[in-house]
Deep mutational scan, measured.
Amino acid sequence: TTLHFDLDGKKLQYTGVSEEIARLVEELKRRGVDLKEIVRILEELLK
């Protein structure tokens, strides 16, 4: 799965993300978590 974000005018793309992580990101968005925080979490998970 590939995730795309537009953060402060920067286009971020994460490829090869598992379905689980993609679902987690969608859930965080639904809960109103700040996009910067979501990206920070995502980068930690993908290390």
Rank of each mutant, 00 (worst) to 15 (best):
Y14R: 00
G32W: 05
T2L: 04
G32K: 07
S18G: 06
E27R: 12
R23M: 11
E37V: 09
L3Q: 01
T1D: 06
L3A: 00
I38W: 01
D6Q: 06
Q13D: 06
I21C: 03
L24G: 10
R23S: 14
K47F: 14
V25K: 00
I21R: 02
E44L: 12
D6S: 04
E26K: 10
L42K: 00
Q13Y: 11
L12W: 08
Y14V: 03
R30I: 10
I41S: 06
K47G: 11
V33I: 12
E26T: 15
L7G: 01
L42D: 00
L45H: 09
G9D: 06
G9P: 01
G16S: 06
A22F: 13
D8N: 05
L12K: 04
L35Q: 08
V17P: 01
L42C: 03
D34P: 13
S18Q: 05
G9Q: 02
L12N: 02
L46Q: 04
E37C: 06
L3T: 01
L35A: 09
F5L: 05
V17M: 03
R23A: 14
E43G: 05
T2A: 05
Y14E: 00
L46F: 06
E20A: 12
E43H: 05
L35V: 14
L42Y: 01
V39E: 00
E44N: 09
G16P: 02
K36H: 14
G9M: 02
L7I: 15
T1R: 10
Y14K: 00
D34T: 10
G9C: 02
R23G: 12
V39F: 03
L45Q: 10
V25W: 02
D8Q: 04
L45I: 08
E20C: 06
T15E: 13
G9Y: 02
H4E: 15
D8Y: 03
V17S: 01
F5Y: 02
L24R: 15
L24N: 13
H4Y: 13
K10I: 14
V17K: 01
L3R: 00
Q13C: 07
K47Y: 15
E44R: 11
L28P: 00
E37Y: 09
V25N: 01
E19L: 09
E27H: 13
K29P: 02
T2D: 14
L46H: 05
E27S: 13
L28V: 03
E27K: 12
K36F: 14
R31Y: 05
R23P: 01
E43T: 06
T15M: 07
E37N: 07
G32C: 07
D34Y: 12
R31V: 08
E20Q: 11
L42P: 00
G16W: 05
T15D: 11
T2P: 02
I41V: 12
G32V: 05
K11A: 10
K47T: 11
E44P: 04
E43I: 05
E20L: 05
K29N: 08
R31N: 10
L35N: 09
Q13M: 15
I38H: 00
Q13A: 13
L7M: 09
V39C: 03
E20D: 13
I38L: 07
R31E: 10
E27P: 02
H4N: 11
I21E: 04
Q13N: 08
R23N: 13
E20I: 05
S18C: 02
E26N: 14
R30G: 13
D8L: 03
E44S: 13
R23H: 12
V17C: 02
R31Q: 12
T15S: 11
L3K: 00
K36M: 09
I21S: 05
R23W: 08
L46S: 03
R31H: 07
F5R: 00
T15P: 07
R30Q: 15
G9H: 03
L35Y: 05
D6C: 07
F5P: 00
K10C: 06
E37T: 10
L28F: 13
E44V: 11
G9R: 01
I21M: 10
K47H: 11
E44M: 14
G16Q: 08
I38Q: 06
E19H: 14
D34E: 13
L42E: 00
K29Q: 11
L3S: 00
G32T: 04
L3G: 01
E19V: 12
E37I: 09
V39T: 03
T1Y: 15
L35R: 04
V39M: 05
F5I: 07
I41G: 04
T1Q: 14
D6A: 03
V25Y: 04
E44H: 13
E26C: 14
L7K: 01
E20K: 09
G32Q: 12
R23E: 12
V39K: 03
R31D: 07
D8W: 02
T2V: 09
D8G: 06
V17Q: 01
I41L: 10
D8K: 01
E27T: 15
L28T: 02
F5D: 01
H4G: 05
S18W: 02
G16I: 04
V17D: 01
G16M: 07
L28Q: 05
V17N: 01
R40F: 15
F5W: 02
E19R: 06
L7N: 03
K11T: 12
K36D: 07
D34S: 11
T1C: 02
A22R: 09
Y14C: 01
V25F: 04
Y14Q: 00
I38A: 02
D34N: 10
E27A: 14
I21G: 06
E43R: 04
I21Q: 10
E20R: 08
G32D: 09
V39L: 10
E19F: 14
H4I: 14
V39D: 00
E43C: 02
L35G: 08
K11C: 08
R40P: 04
E19W: 15
L35S: 08
E19M: 13
L24Q: 15
F5H: 00
D6G: 01
R40T: 11
H4T: 15
E37L: 09
E19P: 11
A22Y: 14
E44W: 15
F5G: 00
K10Q: 11
T1F: 15
I21P: 02
L28R: 03
I41R: 11
E19Y: 14
E43V: 06
R30A: 12
L24H: 15
K47S: 11
E20T: 10
T1G: 10
K10W: 07
E44D: 12
S18D: 06
T15H: 13
L28W: 14
R40I: 07
S18I: 04
H4F: 13
K36E: 09
L7R: 00
L42Q: 00
E27M: 14
L45T: 11
T2C: 05
E26M: 15
I41F: 07
E20H: 09
G32M: 11
D6K: 03
L42H: 00
L24T: 15
L28C: 02
E27W: 13
K36V: 12
L28A: 05
V33K: 06
R23F: 10
T15I: 10
E19C: 02
K10P: 02
E26A: 14
L12A: 04
T15Y: 07
Y14W: 06
L3M: 05
E44C: 09
L28Y: 15
G16V: 04
H4R: 05
V25L: 05
L45W: 08
R30M: 13
K11I: 07
G32N: 14
K29W: 15
E20M: 06
E27F: 15
L45P: 02
K11E: 10
K10A: 10
H4S: 10
R40E: 07
R30E: 07
D6L: 09
I38M: 04
F5S: 00
E20F: 06
I41A: 08
E19S: 08
L35P: 11
E20W: 11
Q13W: 11
D8C: 04
D34R: 07
Q13E: 14
E26G: 12
L35W: 03
G32S: 09
E19T: 10
K10D: 08
I21D: 08
Q13F: 13
H4V: 14
L12H: 06
L45N: 08
Y14H: 00
G16N: 15
V33H: 06
L45M: 13
V25T: 04
T15C: 05
A22E: 08
G9I: 01
G32Y: 05
K36T: 13
I21H: 12
T15W: 06
K10E: 12
K29D: 07
R30V: 14
L7V: 13
T2F: 04
G9S: 03
S18H: 05
R30T: 09
E37G: 05
E43M: 05
E27Y: 15
D8E: 10
L45R: 08
R30K: 09
R40S: 09
L3W: 01
L35D: 10
I38C: 03
L7C: 04
A22N: 06
E37H: 07
Q13S: 15
E44I: 13
S18R: 06
V33W: 14
I38T: 04
L28E: 04
K11R: 11
L7T: 02
D6R: 02
L3H: 02
L46I: 09
T1N: 11
A22G: 09
S18E: 04
E19N: 08
I38D: 00
G9V: 01
V25I: 10
A22T: 08
R31P: 01
E44T: 12
R23K: 11
I21Y: 08
I41W: 07
V25A: 04
Y14D: 00
K29S: 11
T2S: 07
D34H: 09
E43Q: 06
T2R: 03
L46A: 03
L24M: 13
G32F: 06
I41Q: 13
E19A: 11
Y14M: 02
L42V: 07
D6I: 09
L3C: 03
L42F: 04
D8R: 00
R30D: 07
R23C: 08
V39I: 13
H4K: 05
V33D: 07
G32A: 12
V33M: 14
E26I: 13
Q13V: 15
L7S: 03
E27D: 14
E44A: 13
S18L: 03
E44F: 15
L46V: 06
H4A: 08
A22D: 03
K11W: 10
Y14G: 00
L46T: 05
